[in-house]
Amino acid sequence: MRLMLSTAVVLGALSLAACGGESSGPVTPKSAGGATPPSTTSNVTITGAGASFPQPIYAQWAQDYNAATGVKVNYQSIGSSGGVKQINSKTVDFGATDAPLSKEDLDHNGLIQFPTVIGGVVPIVNIEGIQPGQLKLDGNTLAKIYLGQITNWNDAAIKALNPDINLPDATITTVFRSDGSGTSFNFTNYLSAVSAEWKTTVGAANAVKWPTASSNSGTAGKGNEGVANFVRTVKNSIGYVEFAYAKQNNMSHVSLKNKAGNFVQPSLETFSAAAKADWNSVPGFGLILTDQADANAWPIAAATFILVHTKPADAEKTKAALSFFDWAYNTGDDASVKLDYVPLPAETKALIRESWKQVVDANGKPVL
């Protein structure tokens, strides 16, 4: 079976069909970070594109921000590679990526980068009778599944990790991303950390040559939503998505063995445990949070990032975009938690707001 799913989700400020989150209703604009939201009568529309990982929370924030200010935020979930391409070509007001850009790339393209929330990439399965969190896997076994070396659910390696589960004698179908994806980057970065063979033969990138792609046991879907759709409909399949997609689709995620040797479940607590780091230690706040050593850390935790130009062609639109994220930092934490994302610490938000001073208008003055 060789399938290809192509989905493009365009998120307006009033459209949450793909999100599944509940609106918190109209809110009063705040400006603790120094930004003043546009007037509630504003006809401004902010455009962004990129990672599907944060799509649920960006959609929720967009709805709430529109209710509070009248400003619309249209976000296209097209994958991290697409988001980088769009911001570099200056066709959007902000780009979004889950794979942080290096300082060299940021400087070369005249960009700044900052994180918005932290979440987790989770393996999901469609195995009859298996409940969320019931199936246990370790990194080496997960890598062998995606290398095509473990092809059946009742393989001895999987049974050894799950002696109390009646696993079927059924071929495993691996599901992966067809598009350039920060979710894929974080997933393959983790597999590279736990499997020397994966690191040397496949590696970590937004797009890789999937070992099972040339066989009948590999299937590609576009976006987190595409992978979730395939796993939901293909029996005995395994895929990887941002945790919110797994919860919204009532899918069975797996429990993973972390670097400390503990089997952990994806949750706000385990994502937070993985995010205990010095955000200012890396240019552009570009921390990679996979395979952290904390005893409670989820092994495939990840931040998601925004990209804007330091010298934008339209300073007012970029100001509006930064005002949106300033509002989200002030007002959007509750929505983040409801959708199983970890808000950034207040001190990190302060550092990010300071970095926004690099974004200047034609006269060299900060836009915000």
Rank of each mutant, 00 (worst) to 15 (best):
S192Q: 14
A273V: 09
K276W: 06
N74L: 07
A246P: 14
N249S: 09
G133R: 07
N224Q: 14
N43Q: 03
P312C: 01
A96H: 05
L167H: 05
P56S: 01
A295P: 05
T69I: 04
K72W: 02
A59K: 02
N216T: 05
A32Q: 13
T310L: 06
A328F: 01
S89E: 15
G284K: 06
T36S: 07
F230M: 15
A204I: 13
E242H: 12
K209N: 12
I306L: 03
P211D: 08
G129W: 14
G119W: 09
M1W: 00
G180T: 06
N126G: 09
Q86K: 13
E316Y: 07
Q113L: 06
P283V: 08
A346F: 02
Y65L: 00
A244F: 04
G182F: 09
N216V: 10
F243T: 07
A275Q: 13
D138A: 10
T171Y: 13
D334M: 11
P299W: 02
T331R: 05
S355K: 11
S80R: 13
G20E: 09
N296E: 11
A313L: 15
A213I: 12
T200Q: 15
H253W: 15
T69H: 00
L289T: 02
K90T: 11
S184D: 14
P29N: 03
S184E: 14
G12K: 12
V234W: 04
G286R: 09
P37D: 03
L3H: 04
F305K: 10
A205V: 05
G110P: 10
G48M: 01
V254L: 15
A328R: 04
A320R: 08
P312H: 06
S255W: 01
L3K: 13
K259I: 07
S31A: 03
E347Y: 06
V342S: 05
L3G: 02
I172F: 01
I46M: 00
K136R: 15
D98T: 09
T200N: 12
P56A: 04
K276T: 10
G50V: 08
F325K: 11
S42V: 00
I124A: 07
G221I: 04
P343C: 05
N162F: 12
E22Q: 05
S215F: 08
L135W: 00
W356Q: 08
A228G: 06
Q149G: 10
P163C: 02
A62V: 00
P266C: 07
S214C: 01
A328M: 06
K199F: 04
A246K: 05
G139T: 04
P132F: 11
S217I: 11
S77E: 03
N296Y: 03
R177M: 13
Q149D: 02
V234D: 13
D93C: 02
H108R: 14
S323A: 06
A313E: 14
K317V: 09
P115L: 06
G12E: 00
Q76V: 15
T310G: 00
D98K: 09
S192G: 12
N126R: 10
A18E: 08
D64Q: 01
L322A: 00
K159L: 10
E269A: 15
A274L: 11
F187D: 08
I78G: 01
A220I: 12
A273P: 10
V342K: 15
P115V: 05
T41M: 09
K136G: 00
G25Q: 02
T183C: 11
A99Y: 03
T188F: 08
L5Y: 06
T40N: 02
